[in-house]
Design a protein around this nucleic acid. Sequence first.
DNA 1: CCAAAAGTGTTTGCGATACACCCATGT
DNA 2: ACATGGGTGTATCGCAAACACTTTTGG
Lengths: 232, 232
Amino acid sequence: MSLNSAFYENADPLLLAVDCIIFGYTPEGLKLLLFKRRVEPFAGAWSLIGSFVQRDESVEEATSRILEEATGLSHIFQEELGVFSSVNRDPGGRVISIAYYALVRIQEEDADLLALHQASWFPVDQRPPLILDHEAMVVAGLDKLRRKARYQPLGFELLPEKFTIPQLRSFYEAILQREVDQGNFRKKILAMGILEKLAEKDRASSKKGAHYYRFDRDQYDRQVQEGFDFTI
Amino acid sequence: MSLNSAFYENADPLLLAVDCIIFGYTPEGLKLLLFKRRVEPFAGAWSLIGSFVQRDESVEEATSRILEEATGLSHIFQEELGVFSSVNRDPGGRVISIAYYALVRIQEEDADLLALHQASWFPVDQRPPLILDHEAMVVAGLDKLRRKARYQPLGFELLPEKFTIPQLRSFYEAILQREVDQGNFRKKILAMGILEKLAEKDRASSKKGAHYYRFDRDQYDRQVQEGFDFTI
DNA sequence: CCAAAAGTGTTTGCGATACACCCATGT
DNA sequence: ACATGGGTGTATCGCAAACACTTTTGG
């Protein structure tokens, strides 16, 4: 170890956890993936999914591990939200938690896994009471998602691979919580040059049918390189 | 303890630290407060100031404690920057660090304390090599400060209580790293209605003299309440 | 009276908003 | 043929950017 390990040995060891706010989206609105807690205290209550950070992994790796265990998906969008560290936040022990939010396409996760974990998608504004300070985490996550979606292309993590302009507009109406003008939205988003138009049309919601588009991440990255601003 | 304490007892305890990126500002530009490290490994090298989080304090409290110990000031602006948790980031032990950035008025801190801690202010673009991953923390802090100062009134934490419009403009030129038009800047910032004009003038930098102003936080908070956007 | 910085006024152009209008098609 | 949602075009307003101009005062 080090030449002066007393410095390290005199420090208080703590438990460090990660809790994940997993967001999804359907045409009905934003959703939140919640889990029935299995351990005391508060066994049986609704909770975010979480885990302790292990000695041999970084916090990001712990988050990826948790997300993959819970949904069966890897490479999920994840970003740190904040540290929750009140001394008495967890009656079970002195645990400091790093909250992450994650974005998943609701169709893609493994239904059996969700059942196994006793997990359910809730509309964000109809969420049940949550354990510990998880409600505060969700509020912070919602706030961050709503702010950030305005100037970063987070929506494309939540929508299906293929989507129509009206669907994308509905998503932003849900996020921004206000109406968005059809024509202006279409012109603006297409002018960015980051959507690839597909031949296929969606005929489910109108007789004329709406063209499907796909997010072109390479093009987006190139635009950003040139100082382009995504803001909706 | 809990009914199922095995859940907690089987977890790996870790050391949690806080490291502070302390920014200051002088007319010459942005400054960074660095410290000579006293303990091995890397004793004698330049470092951010930090400390382990103790069992009986939150991470925010630990940060305030560190900042007060280092500068003699309380109620310093502080905000979390990110978690640094690579498994091998610290050869001294398995330490996960939460980086905070803090903003102080350079005149106000206690000079004796700085000497006691072997601390010095460095121009941000002339900083020495730093221990561990502190260089990455500084880069992240600079990035966050530069982004955030554009749409949050962080500048007023760094400038003296009283400042002139030209001084404020110089600050934003340093932050944004580009020239800012005099006339337009003055009109915009005054139109926000968050500056209080003082009778006194600064005659140091011109014969005509420039009026001093003071940031009116109450007015700012009221404006924000009404959906006002600060963006420079 | 002139240089130098503070401070004011004027013009211009682009982008956001509002909204009118045209298109395609299943019933 | 018409209702319905997709898609296009156009007028307007506000505001940021550029920049010319006026003010003040010490040397």
